[in-house]
Simulated assay, not measured.
Amino acid sequence: MLRLADSLDMISRLTASVIRWLALVMVLVQFGIVVGRYVFGYNIIAVQESVLYMHATLFMLGAGYTLLVDKHVRVDVFYAKAEPRTQRRIDVFGHVFLLIPSMLVILYWSWPSVRNSWKILEGPISVGGIEAVFLLKSLIPAFCILLVIQSLSLLIRLLLPETSRPEAKA
């Protein structure tokens, strides 16, 4: 089971290793937009939209990795002061009854919109923008799938006996 969890973690790590470069590209493109607009008085809407696409891609595809490294937002009213065993129970509850079901619901309800967007190759958000809204909408199911994969990995680790968990050996 630990090997399966490691394999699932690798999906998040590989995704993050590719998309992390979008942060740098996004900053450089935004800098170019500012220079182009305020120094040269030149503006291209498609380039402006590309920042939106990169930003969405970075956050939607990076969510699984964020969960893996435990840097996601956590409402820790009870969690922070709880014993490790209680924290594990809270985590299991969160994965089984909140995260996985909500991702499956979002996946189910967003799929028709994504499918239709691909069917018509949905065009730009703005006139002169990027003619690929269908790619932007495809981030929704990708986000859901990556979060479910990472959630399953964490759930496997949470349900392993105490002695076989990697953190127990450290």
Rank of each mutant, 00 (worst) to 15 (best):
M1W: 14
M1G: 05
M1A: 04
R3L: 09
L4Y: 06
D6N: 12
L8Q: 04
L8I: 08
I11S: 00
L14Y: 01
A16I: 09
V18G: 00
I19P: 02
R20E: 11
W21D: 07
A23E: 02
A23K: 09
V25Y: 11
V27L: 15
V27S: 11
V27T: 11
L28C: 12
Q30H: 14
V34G: 08
V35I: 15
F40P: 00
A46G: 03
Q48V: 11
Q48P: 09
V51M: 05
Y53D: 04
F59G: 00
F59M: 11
L61F: 10
L61W: 11
G62T: 08
A63F: 04
A63E: 12
Y65N: 10
T66V: 15
L68R: 09
V69N: 01
K71L: 11
H72W: 13
V77R: 00
K81P: 00
R85P: 00
T86M: 12
I90D: 03
V96P: 05
F97E: 12
I100Q: 03
S102Y: 04
M103H: 08
L104V: 07
V105S: 08
Y108N: 01
W109L: 14
W109S: 10
S113G: 13
V114M: 01
N116R: 08
N116C: 11
S117I: 15
S117H: 07
S117Q: 13
K119P: 00
K119T: 15
I120P: 00
L121Q: 07
I130G: 04
E131G: 09
L135T: 12
K137S: 07
S138W: 10
L139N: 06
L139T: 05
I140D: 06
P141A: 10
I145Y: 02
I145L: 09
L147G: 06
V148D: 06
S151L: 05
S151A: 10
L152F: 07
L152G: 01
L152P: 00
S153W: 12
L154D: 07
I156E: 01
I156D: 02
R157T: 02
L158Q: 04
L159Y: 04
P161I: 14
P161F: 10
E162A: 04
T163W: 05
K169P: 09
